[in-house]
Each structure stands twice: as structure tokens, then as C-alpha cells.
Design a binder for these strands. Sequence first.
DNA 1: AGCGTCACTTGACATGATGTAAAGCTACCA
DNA 2: TGGTAGCTTTACATCATGTCAAGTGACGCT
Lengths: 202, 202
Amino acid sequence: MSSDARAYGDPDTRRRILFATWEAIEEVGADIRLRDVAERARVSRQAVYLHFGDRANLLLALVEFMPETLGFPKLLAHVFAAESGVEMLRRAVVLHSTYNAKIDSVARVLEAAQYQDTALGAAWRDRMTRSRAAHRMIVQRIAEEGRLTDGWTVEDAGDLFYTVTMQSPWRELTCELGWSPKQYARRMTKLLLDSFVTESQA
Amino acid sequence: MSSDARAYGDPDTRRRILFATWEAIEEVGADIRLRDVAERARVSRQAVYLHFGDRANLLLALVEFMPETLGFPKLLAHVFAAESGVEMLRRAVVLHSTYNAKIDSVARVLEAAQYQDTALGAAWRDRMTRSRAAHRMIVQRIAEEGRLTDGWTVEDAGDLFYTVTMQSPWRELTCELGWSPKQYARRMTKLLLDSFVTESQA
DNA sequence: AGCGTCACTTGACATGATGTAAAGCTACCA
DNA sequence: TGGTAGCTTTACATCATGTCAAGTGACGCT
């Protein structure tokens, strides 16, 4: 995935356009026009096409750009630096509670667009696949520590963990139902630990 | 909500158009063109506009039309006819496991469109609000029977129940990860019961 | 100084879907 | 016979996407 031989144009301009797109999506929503994006980036509409080819490709680039900009790798590393599987799970949910908020407006657009553009759908799916793998590793760790409840396999619990902490449920609970990040983290963690983990300390 | 003084035109034609829309969405996806819809319904493109005004309104009508057509009220009644709260929850998850499948293609379109059209968004939200209330009632029943775990309030558990059984997580688990309806029902039920319900029988 | 090239601008244009407007057709009903 | 409801046909305005071609300015190289 993700490696076009060489990107066109000035990297700074490219970044400006990506930031402009991001801003535009946050303000306007899904139906951003590329002329608005261009205006925000203070370039011509055609510059956008020169850099990214088309709308789908622009969003595609944004999918890579956001996590880099938000320092996602570091945040993820902190989750995996935990000393126990249960603590990893806790930290993962906390990460979701804050990180999901930052990418939500863009995520809405991508969720909607993924079925219309093949390449974009693939990129989004790829992102999901990684996330799924990360969640499974956490459950794997819990299992290795002998704390996974008998009824669950690593695979099933991992997939469920991954799925219920996805963007959509998070969005519903926080944006629509008003849960704070802390409430989200506490309650979601409780749900998962209650089912996945055998009691021992907490 | 949902009561325009009187609908235009022949009700049969109206139904034909709605079915055609439904079909078109299932085959083509989100980017259906109204001319395709018209073609399937064997009416002119303008007939669609005469009946529904615009695209958003057509989708709006579809939101009401689908549950009626699929006999949703009866299915819901069966859930609430259960003798215990726990059994209600079980039945609700089973209902999700099959019903979500039937509406999924249309749900994708509506989820995407809800942020673009105000009225459509409101209608979709209304649907969600009802669903949320139903889920809460089930948890309420569990609580009344004294089986709700100490750590949960009816409200929080209800909202979580509602949220994790939403369309999106269901879609991910079944369409993308390949869970069968039975697997979905069993595992989702286990997750919820493990956390919400105090052990007593099963 | 001259030359080319990169990065971008400008303006024009084709495409294609949405939505509106107006006139015509047909069957039924009074 | 006349009217109206329900739909068709044709035409048209709009608007975003995406493409094309020519032009401009800065920069580096010779």
C-alpha cells in the first residue's frame, strides 16, 4: 500500500492542502467542495488536482496524514508498553476515548466514501485490519497471562473488542448520548473486562 | 414526524418506486441515480420527483417503508413478549442478527446521507432514539427482576446495549469478519450478559 | 545572459446528476 | 362534453468534478 513513486510538487504546499481539507471537513462536513479546500490552502483549484489527482486520492492521502500528524504511533506504543494485558486493554480504551474524537469528522466522510471508491475503501479497510490486529494482540496477552475467561477464544474476544470500540459506537455514545471521554472509557472497559477477564485482583 | 397531509399520486406507483429504490441501493450501492430508480419502477424520472420531491425525501420515505414491509413491529413484539428481562435481551440480539442484515445496504446510504440533509438526519435520529428506548426498557426489566449487576445503572447499561448492537458493529462482525448470525448472537449476548447480569441460573 | 524546468495559475470546457418548468396525453368521472 | 388526476416528454438551469492548454515566475545550470 501507500507508496507512489514520488509525490508531485512542493511538500509544503501538499501539507497545506491536506490541512485545508481536514479543516474544511471539520467545518463543512462530508460535502466539501474542492474549490473550498483550494481556497483555504490558498492555492488554485487545479493545484489540488495536480497534487492528488482526484477527490478520492486526496482523502486517501488524508488517511495517512492524520495519524502521522496526531502522533498515533507514539500513543499506540504507550498502550503496548503496559506491563499487563488488562492494563493494555484499559489504555487502549482510553486511547479510543480521546483519539476517536480527533478523527471523527474525517472518519465520517471516509466511512461514507469507502463504498464508492475502491482504492479508498481498500485504504480504509487496511486501517481497520491493523486496528483489529492490535486489539487481538491485547487479548492474546491477556490469554497468555491466564486471565481470559473460559468461554472466549482470543480471536473472538479480540474481534469483539475491536468492533465495540470502533468509531461508530464511540460516536453514538459521546457525540449523540453525551458520554464524556472518561465515562466512555470507564464503562466500555467495564463491559469488556467483566466478560473477558477472570476475577483475580480487579 | 412522518405525516405529509396527503401523498401525491397512485399509492401503487409510490410503492413501486420505493421498492425500486430499495433494489437499486442493494445492487448499485450508495450512488444510485434517480433515473435508475425510475427505470426499475418503470416510470419516468419526473414521476419520482412528483411523488417524493427530491432524493432526500425519497430516502426519508424508505426509512418508514422498510420496517413496515419487513414486519418489524411484529418482530419487536416477540422480543417484548419474553417472560424475563434476560430472555428479552437474548431475543433482541437474535433479532439484530437477522434484521440488521436485511436493512444493511439501505442503512449504509442513510448513515452517509444523514449529515448532508437535515430532515433525513432527523428521521434517522428518530429511528435511533426509538431503538435506544427499546434497549433501555429491556435493561429496565432486568433491573426490576433484580438481576442487573451492581456497577451498572439502567441508563448506562441500556445505552451501551443499544450502541454495541448497532448497525455498524454488526456490519463489521458479519460482513467483514464473517461471523454468522448465530455466532453474532451468541457472542454478543455473552458479552452483554457477562457484564450486565448477576449469575443465578444462566 | 540565456535556457529549461518545476510548480503553479488562469480560463475554458466536457460530463453528468440533480432539480424545475411547461406542455401534452390518457383514462376516468361527473 | 368538460375537467381533473396522474403521468410522460422535452427542455433547461445549476453545480461540482475532472481535463486541457497556455501562460507566468522563480530557480538552477551552463
